[in-house]
Write a protein that binds this DNA or RNA. Structure first.
Lengths: 355, 355
DNA sequence: ATGAAAGCGCTAACAT
DNA sequence: ATGTTAGCGCTTTCAT
């Protein structure tokens, strides 16, 4: 039994004036209480809260937004896949936004093309948001819009201009580098890279991390392979790669592509990790339970989302203060069973092949 | 080069009065054009549209909502996992909502507990929504709230009362049944079931479909196993199951649990599908690329979301009309490599074990 | 087919 | 510490 008044269906929703009357104060005092403003006596506050409860009063956000010019909403432009990475990032953003006391408006751009992003931003702005999050946009083309709220670019550099832009990386560069170095440390001469679709910033970032590791070690940089994040595209790349006997290590830009890749390799008679090592990217825990368990690098989605939203909220609420510095998320390499030292050189002069 | 006026930062955003003045009409006419109302001459409409464009005018949703009492937003209470199923359903909802011309507000309830759901609903109502979607809520406990907008329960029966409630199943029952029947058809005497967490409606639904298939064929109903949707929980269940030599077929309520299960089975020396067949649930395409490729049943997330939103929008816009009937989504069994006929009876009288 | 006036429920600025 | 007044930018009457 919850105490409280049963409301007849159809009775109009109570307004702040009703609360004020019941509490015996003015509407402004009600407003003060509801917004945690100072200069309200404890007694008045008590009475207002009690009246609010008794009437089942719910503040009207539209009216508040209209009067105050602030919506207490943050809009996010998300990329339209149901993949582990995208979904994890979105959940992280949702939680961070809610914890900061803001509401969330979401628009998905199925393709992530500049035009779709522009449309999404425009629509979010019209709906009314105090800030915008643009998650991992594509890098081609331009977006020309009048944007007068701060914009957070998550995992990518600013893709367009706004009053105030912020950027928080998801640390893909060092992660890609760590993945590549892991393979190099194992003794592989070089590491091939199965990248994501061109035009994605996430793709570019990982390529650069991979390249940096190779360059630093003076390793040969093999030609790039491109997939579309899907396991099917990884499988296709794997078929092509299996024919090349010189390949002993591959770093895939996504776990799912890595899974497809491994499948193709094994179908072609190449053993993983005995003949070829594969590292994924993202850290989806389910791939600890496939054969071989996938070595991967964990993306700090929650940390990136939290950090980003913290900055965005700061930019919204204290536009003139300097931003607190961004902290770099830790690199987390998850070594499982899909990586091993390279196989001994094929037959030949050195010594007879061991078992 | 996009044509249009460059706006000086800081100049106030244009209002409908500005558009009206530029177009030489009244504010009401502007409003009519923007809302596609009748009784506007083509000429006036043209002029208004041109002025809108020229000023870079954006309608203020908060003001509209306040004046009209309608927000053109739909709120969704989602369950907080980044799993393939949940994420797919959310994307489907987002797209359907957007196509219907509504904006989306999302709140995630990490645990899905009744209290969290109540909090989420309350918050969404306060933010202002014309309708609510509650996705696969947990079945325990009560939620007592005054809700005066239509509510769509997706994949579960109504969990609380509102002005108007709608329900759209995701068709889990027939899907679970099809999965079980597939195994029975293969010749298995019975089928074990690795269910999801208790209290989830999705769990209950699948159990019932499984049980119905078993009962209809007169098959013995083995005791239930429970997981938490994760691969790790599937792995734990698999370890327990591997000891029981009588088990030849398992239907797991989620793909990830199936993957964990298979992993444990194989570690224990049981071959899949030769010794034990496993069917998953959801249809995540990546599991076509593991060994063995996972036989599963595809959930029609997009269809369910679309159907549900269609109904919800109907309830919002024409509260008095009867609802168009819901169409049942098709059952899609995806047979891959994790299922096969049961192994021949162990040693004994029949005939010597082959190979 | 178009316009003028009123008001949605709240907060801002300025009282007191 | 509290109240009063005047809008926020739109849509709704109801005129014309």
């Amino acid at each position: 039994m919850t105490p409280g008044v049963e409301h007849v269906a159809g009775s109009p929703a109570p307004r702040s004036a009703d609360v004020a009357k019941l509490a015996g104060v003015s509407r402004k005092t009600v407003s003060r209480v509801l917004n945690n403003e100072p200069y309200v006596s404890d007694e008045a506050r008590e009475r207002v809260l009690a009246a609010t409860e008794e009437l089942g009063y719910r503040l009207n956000h539209a009216a508040r937004a209209l009067a105050s010019g602030r919506t207490r909403s943050i809009g996010v432009v998300a990329l339209g896949t149901a993949g582990y990475g995208t979904a994890s990032l979105l959940m992280g953003i949702e939680q961070a936004v809610r914890n900061a006391g803001y509401a969330l408006r979401v628009i998905n751009t199925p393709d992530g093309a500049p035009k779709s992003i522009a449309g999404a931003v425009e629509s979010l702005l019209e709906q009314g948001v105090d800030g915008l999050v643009v998650s991992e946009p594509i890098v081609e083309g331009d977006v020309a819009l009048r944007i007068d709220v701060p914009v957070l670019f998550l995992g990518a550099p600013p893709a367009f201009t706004a009053t105030r832009t912020l950027t928080v990386g998801v640390g893909a560069h060092p992660l890609a580098r760590a993945a590549t170095e892991h393979l190099l440390d194992l003794g592989h001469t070089t590491v091939h890279h199965l990248a994501g679709p061109r035009h994605w910033y996430a793709t570019k970032d990982r390529i650069e991390g991979w390249r940096a590791a190779l360059t630093e070690r003076g390793a040969y940089e093999p030609p790039l392979l491109n997939g579309d994040w899907s396991a099917a595209s990884g499988y296709a790349a794997g078929r092509a790669l299996a024919a090349d006997r010189s390949v002993t290590a591959v770093f895939a830009a996504g776990d799912e592509m890595a899974i497809g890749l491994i499948h193709a390799l094994r179908e072609a008679g190449r053993r993983v990790p005995d003949d070829i090592s594969v590292v994924g990217f993202d850290g989806n825990p389910v791939f600890a339970y496939v054969s071989p368990p996938l070595t991967t690098v964990r993306q700090p989605f929650d940390a990136a989302a939290e950090e980003g939203i913290r900055l965005l909220v700061h930019a919204i609420e204290e536009p003139d203060t300097a931003l607190p510095p961004a902290s770099d998320p830790p690199v987390e390499l998850v070594v499982r069973g899909s990586t091993a030292p390279p196989p001994p050189p094929p037959s030949g002069l050195a010594r007879p092949a061991a078992t």
